[in-house]
Computed example of a mutant assay.
Amino acid sequence: MEKSTPLVSVCMPAYNAGEYIADTVKSITDQSYANWELIIVNDGSTDDTAAIVNQLTDSRIKVFHQENKGQCAAANQAFRLSKGKLIKFMDADDLLSPNYIYNQVSMINGDDDVIAFAAWGRFYSNSLATFHLDDSFLTSSMKPAEWLIASMTDKQVMLQCALWLIPRKILDVSGLWDETLSLINDFEFFIRVLLCAHELRFTNDAVLYYRSGLAQSLSATTSAKGAESAYHSVNLGTQYLLKQETSNRVKKIAADCFQRLVYTFYPQHKAIVHKAALKVKELGGSSIAFPAGGYTKILASILGWKTTQYLKFIFKKRA
């Protein structure tokens, strides 16, 4: 019985999630799999998050309140409060399909050295009518290093936390979230965690509905702390991968990751841009194009990406 229905702990940091968290919790309570616990850590929210989660009556839900320490610290606290053999970290604004947990548990099938993952897509404006499944996401069961390399070749990898169901035993080996990181902290964490598994198994009939376009989720990119976090996360994550394989294909993947930082943080965070550019050169260079569409793409083709990015920065600063 224990093997077929192990306790699943959903670890959910929550910061100013009052507008969405009730729907997220409902997607957990509506799961066809019943043996779960949800640990919500309210990370010093200043909106009505605390009031909403305090009204939850399901006995499988545990709520913990703390002063604001950041997403990583809240996720670690949720894990420390958890008891499950299988762990799912989950943001407080995303949604799971009804058979998500059941099918991921079935896919793991009692093995403690494999991680289950699932399909995903984005939705906007608080409306599932806008949902679109990401059909470029790699949905093959593979060895972790090969999956990461395939998923990161010429594109950005999706490592959103709710995609993964992870045996506690793997987390005991990999370690928890790095609390010094804030922006793209999942990059470092999940590369480290996934590489501790024997296999990644794709789960059919399991879809993560990823909420996109939230203004507060973009604010960290404007801060020096966020830029520094992004650099360190990319630096650590790519180092983990390069320890697995030092081939030219992996060096190119790493260079592309740093080049994306150059594009993202120019011209506001010049020190980070300089460090990232040095990494790109050290790793053999990157050929990925400046990410742009519409008028930005036209402008970049005329003025170059640096001038275009600088003009966008000035415009946003004055707005």
Rank of each mutant, 00 (worst) to 15 (best):
V250M: 01
T130H: 04
R60V: 11
T222A: 07
C196S: 10
T222V: 06
T308S: 01
P98N: 13
Y263A: 03
Q77M: 12
L208Y: 01
L138N: 10
L95T: 09
L195G: 05
L81Y: 11
A92K: 08
L163P: 03
G293D: 03
T203M: 10
I288M: 05
L56F: 10
L241V: 08
K251F: 01
Q160M: 15
L95C: 09
S140Y: 09
T221Q: 04
K85N: 09
K297P: 00
C72G: 12
K251C: 08
T307V: 07
W120P: 12
Y263N: 00
Y102K: 06
Y240C: 00
I39C: 03
T308K: 01
I52V: 11
I40C: 05
M12C: 15
A162G: 13
Q156N: 07
F89V: 15
F190S: 11
L176I: 08
L303E: 01
G293R: 15
E37C: 09
I191G: 08
G70S: 07
Q31T: 10
T29F: 06
K306S: 02
W164V: 14
T222M: 02
T130V: 15
Y266C: 00
G294Y: 08
I170W: 08
N54F: 14
Q66S: 04
N248S: 14
F137K: 00
I288Y: 01
I87G: 13
L194R: 07
V250S: 03
F137P: 02
Q55F: 14
E146F: 05
Q55C: 13
I101S: 12
A129H: 05
T5M: 07
R201D: 15
L176S: 09
L208T: 14
S229R: 11
Y100I: 11
W305D: 00
A254N: 02
L261E: 01
S286H: 06
A150Y: 03
L95P: 02
F89P: 04
K279D: 01
N54K: 05
T222G: 06
I288K: 04
T296A: 02
I170Q: 05
A129R: 09
K3V: 11
D91A: 13
D186T: 10
F79P: 13
L208H: 07
D94L: 12
A129E: 05
V262C: 01
T46R: 06
D94Y: 12
N99R: 06
L208I: 10
S301W: 04
N126Q: 05
W120F: 12
V53N: 00
H232P: 02
A14V: 10
A300R: 00
K243C: 03
I272E: 00
A119N: 09
D205V: 13
S136C: 13
V10F: 06
I184S: 11
E19G: 05
S82N: 15
K143G: 07
L96W: 01
L278I: 12
G44V: 04
D113G: 07
L303M: 05
A119G: 15
L181D: 03
E67N: 01
E199C: 12
D43R: 04
A227R: 08
L171H: 02
K62A: 06
L133Q: 00
L200V: 12
N99D: 13
L242C: 04
N109T: 15
